[in-house]
Simulated assay, not measured.
Amino acid sequence: MNKMIGAGVTAALSFAFAGEALAVEWNVSVWGKRRAFTEHVEKLAELVAEKTNGEFTMNVSYGGLSNNKENLDGISIGAFEMAQFCAGYHPDKNRVITVLELPFLGVSDLEEELAVSTAVYNHPAAAEEMAQWNAKLLMTSPMPQYNLVGTGEPRDELADFEGMRVRATGGLGEAFKAVGAVPTSVTATEAYQAMESGVVDTVSFAQHAHLSFGTINQADWWTANLNPGTVNCPVVVNIDAYEGLSDEHREALDSSVPEALDHYLANYGELLKRWDSVLEEKGVEKVMISDSVKEEFKAQAADPAREAWIEEMEAQGLPGQELYDLVQSTLEEHRATN
């Protein structure tokens, strides 16, 4: 009888440990607070847990694991399994995807931004570069065109940008620099304080970030249609962690990406619909930039930036022209099929 009880206990313990071994828990590093920008990450975690009956879970940490500029470094050393970052934080580490941050690419909505980002992420050069950081591009965080909030008199002429201190990263920072502004790349979480203290006069963000990081609360005006470009912020996974998943767990993750992105687009769309009421509620003037000013901005910023970027990439052995052409051809194909 004792032998039978002992065998039963051993079997039960073995089964328990086997069950425990099946459980996978990933840590995910993002920043700020939960907002439209992170909704696809939250939805992904929800879907993966559902599909695996709770065997594969994700703990989404808002700044508790790393700061935003060090998320790619954290992925490279395996400090966590998934992270979000923006290309402009360290363009030397993710040169390929900075093509998506070039000014005036012509992207007009979130669906187009998703299409061009996905095309670039799927290019072999992007995968190879990210592999140097032990990172796999999983999905993008499509954002609308950035626009400025500022204090004082609206800056609606190109001459007004001369000497303007603007929070703008990556290609957007270079675009503003081309017309005489002084860009600074303070992080999103530092933008409110930079604006409040007068370190910057204006902040360039997408709508959700102006809300989430409070810059809209400092603003007297917002440019509704300057639309110089946007930033590109991928979600990546540690390659070793990804390859270490069981086939079932990997399938649960991969198959959940499209639905997570659909949720993101729908959620962000609702924010855009109520943006005008947000401006009215906070007493922020909606400034429309004339077509002539936008064309002048584009002429001074877009063409030189594009040519300089292509030349720099080609000099480093990367297919700069091919990547830029890929963005343009993807836009054409997307519009033709929609």
Results as ranks from 00 to 15, higher is better:
Ala175Tyr: 00
Asp325Cys: 07
Val9Asp: 04
Pro258Asp: 00
Arg274Thr: 07
Thr169Arg: 11
Glu307Pro: 08
Leu114Thr: 00
Asn217Asp: 15
Tyr89Pro: 00
Val60Thr: 02
Ile216Val: 12
Asn338Gln: 01
Glu314Lys: 12
Lys93His: 13
Leu158Ala: 07
Glu174Met: 15
Ala119Cys: 09
Tyr324Thr: 09
Tyr89Met: 13
Lys51Gln: 08
Glu46Asp: 10
Arg250Pro: 02
Arg35Leu: 14
Asn147Lys: 13
Ile77Arg: 15
Ile239Tyr: 07
Ser256His: 02
Arg165Leu: 05
Tyr324His: 10
Gly163Arg: 11
Val182Gln: 06
Val28Tyr: 08
Val116Ala: 05
Gly74His: 11
Val41His: 08
Asp262Met: 06
Arg34Ser: 12
Glu55Asp: 10
Val231Tyr: 06
Trp275Met: 14
Ile5Glu: 07
Met143Lys: 12
Met4Leu: 15
Phe85Gly: 03
Ser255Trp: 02
Glu174Ser: 11
Pro304Lys: 06
Ala336Gly: 02
Asn267Glu: 01
Ala16Thr: 12
Glu81Gly: 05
Gly180Ile: 08
Phe161Gln: 01
Arg250Phe: 07
Thr10Leu: 15
Gln300Trp: 04
Lys282Ile: 03
Asp247Lys: 12
Tyr62Asn: 01
Asn53Ala: 15
Ser66Gly: 07
Ser61Ile: 08
Ala209Arg: 06
Val149Gln: 02
